[in-house]
Design a binder for these strands. Structure first.
Lengths: 208, 208, 208, 208
DNA sequence: TATGAATGAGTTTTCATTCAT
DNA sequence: CATGAATGAAAACTCATTCAT
């Protein structure tokens, strides 16, 4: 919800502001992030900032939106749209892999999201009530997996959806630690990650 | 590392300060936490605060120490000490259950720890280099489990230890959401949780 | 080294701030000087102060620079530049007289310098290593005086340069006492001072 | 004017407090000096301090008194008492030499006095109106010197007494610079200093 | 729309002094 | 007398936001 003035800006300038904001929000928690740092890096005037955004939170929400949009690009949209044609574990693997690709290629955006992750209060301000889209999505996936008889019918959808969400974050933590890419992962490559996903799957797949 | 003066205080007053600090650190991130709020709630003078603690960080470290100490009380110490007498999954279940018990009974302390969890910089200041004790512990457990031939030898100890850590946090997130206890969990009780743990185990136990 | 914002200020406002700062630094030692007093007298907001200056020391350095600049105006620059055309004692008298003129007309600036004079630590922070320019200057003068055969060759340049510096301060103390101009001196005028300088000269001039 | 309680203290304890105070007042200006530092070094309780002294200034005055008393010990008391038997320049040399001996042997006390020297306000609080004893003393000496026909009758007693005072400080500055004894002076010894005094004398002695 | 100066509430911290035991 | 905890005024400094041009 930036002001229209912001969108009237030349592409280049808008980009510079966006990048500066991402840098700052990746480095510091929302409350610690300093507008001063952002305007300086972006090379704009203090007053201009408030002509583009209502306040710090307004900018933050916008940046988060960009993160979400960017994140979506890493998911194979075809699989999502035609998800009835794919198996549950294929889809799950794709979700996880997309998360990993995103982490590897957009570590800064990941850092921003991670910072938000623990601040429930802020999340609510940013996303209102429905701030747990990730879990919601897994819930849908699980329901469909059960319908297709791919999953152990004993599982509790509520609980497992949350576990899958948590595992997603864990996976990312594994490859992206302390603001740096974990070199071990890069060496051994995706193969290792795939094996890892395999073990996770064991927990919920239908017992024969 | 509070000053001796703090420990000389009458139990009751010390407790009041501790509680006030916990309240504030549970509500806000370290940098956002306000000494003013703490001293007001504790009913002490501004100057007194600095007679008890070197600064805000000093108090925070102390509170974190209390959290860790409290957390340990929730783990069956007998099992930890004589862990060779227990199976890997028995131990794992105990760890997870202890986390859940802690979350249910000490939600405020949990919130404090969670806030710290995402702030790597702060963690290093509080704990020095060894701030990932949780993962280290799971790594030990896994190695012993492998030795006892209870686990799939194909698993990557590094990776799985991190997954188990992440799962632990997920479990806690499931029952403790938005600073309130998730009522669903309390209704259905530990039984449900136990089932959940069971599914997790599938992922790594030895294939027959 | 104030910020550019300070120099962008309208002359009048800048002057008001400068005057307020001079008042405070003339009254109190650097560490005792209060920013609050300065901003109140200058009629600016607390935050503005920190937009103009990095901190109290930044302002202080600036004020000292102004003092030094002002002081230089009181020395006959022609004599300094063409000093080979003048006798040693002529030059010495000019230096001393300039100090006296400065003291009479800028008692506040003198007070500021005097306060700094005893704080070696602060001097080093303000001026770095070369903080004894006064003595250095007298040393040069003495060397030239010896070359021109005007001075007793037995004198120790190191020692006498320090004595001359000290005498300079003494002279100033004589006419400027307790932050007020000593009225006696004003009555009897420069003539008396000139006589005083004459006696000082006896100590080092070449014996016939 | 410490309280009687202070003087009832065992010699050893009193000495420890005195030493601690001297250390602090030698290091920092009165306003910067911290009671905390003093009580810690002296090993006494905070409350005790205020049982011995009314406040910080009370202690300071006492320390200054001790400094003055100590200083007097360095002057040849016989010469002072029977000063009619000595020549003006003999007496003057003794005064100066005593200052130098004091500076060499009691650098800490000298530092305390020097710090006080520039703080006119504080001086008045410590000494009331008659805080310029040094100048007063030189004035007496000069008058007697004139009576004995040893001095140039043209000199202005007011002015020269102040100059002599200033020279005294300069001498001390020469041998005691930046809180350390100037090594050059120690090497060349008192002889050099004596020569220095000789040059000073030239300025005021009776012309033949 | 752009600019950047102005604002002031809010925060941490220090320290002399008082007070209760 | 000794002790050391209690106090709170005051200081420096930060920073999001407003305002005037």
């Amino acid at each position: 919800m930036p002001e229209q003035t912001f969108f009237n800006l030349p592409e280049e300038k808008r980009e510079k502001i966006t990048q500066a904001a991402m840098d700052e929000f990746a480095r510091r928690f929302f409350h610690q992030a300093r507008i001063t740092a952002i305007i300086e890096k972006a090379g704009i005037a203090r007053g201009s900032f408030y002509q583009y955004f209502e306040d710090k939170k307004d900018l933050f929400k916008y940046i988060i939106e960009l993160c979400v949009g960017e994140k979506l690009k890493y998911i194979n949209q075809d699989m999502i749209k035609n998800r009835d044609r794919y198996g549950f574990f294929e889809l799950l693997r794709e979700i996880y892999l997309s998360g990993i690709r995103f982490a590897l290629e957009q570590p800064r955006l990941l850092a921003i999201g991670n910072k938000l992750l623990k601040d429930k209060e802020l999340q609510q301000e940013v996303w209102g009530e429905h701030y747990d889209t990730s879990t919601e999505f897994f819930k849908e996936l699980l329901k469909e997996g059960l319908k297709k008889d791919e999953l152990d019918p004993l599982i509790d959808v509520e609980v497992v959806s949350k576990l899958l969400t948590g595992l997603n974050y864990s996976l990312i933590d594994i490859i992206y630690k302390e603001d740096k890419i974990n070199p071990e992962v890069l060496e051994e490559g995706m193969e290792e990650i795939d094996k890892m996903i395999y073990f996770i799957e064991n927990g919920i797949k239908k017992k024969e």
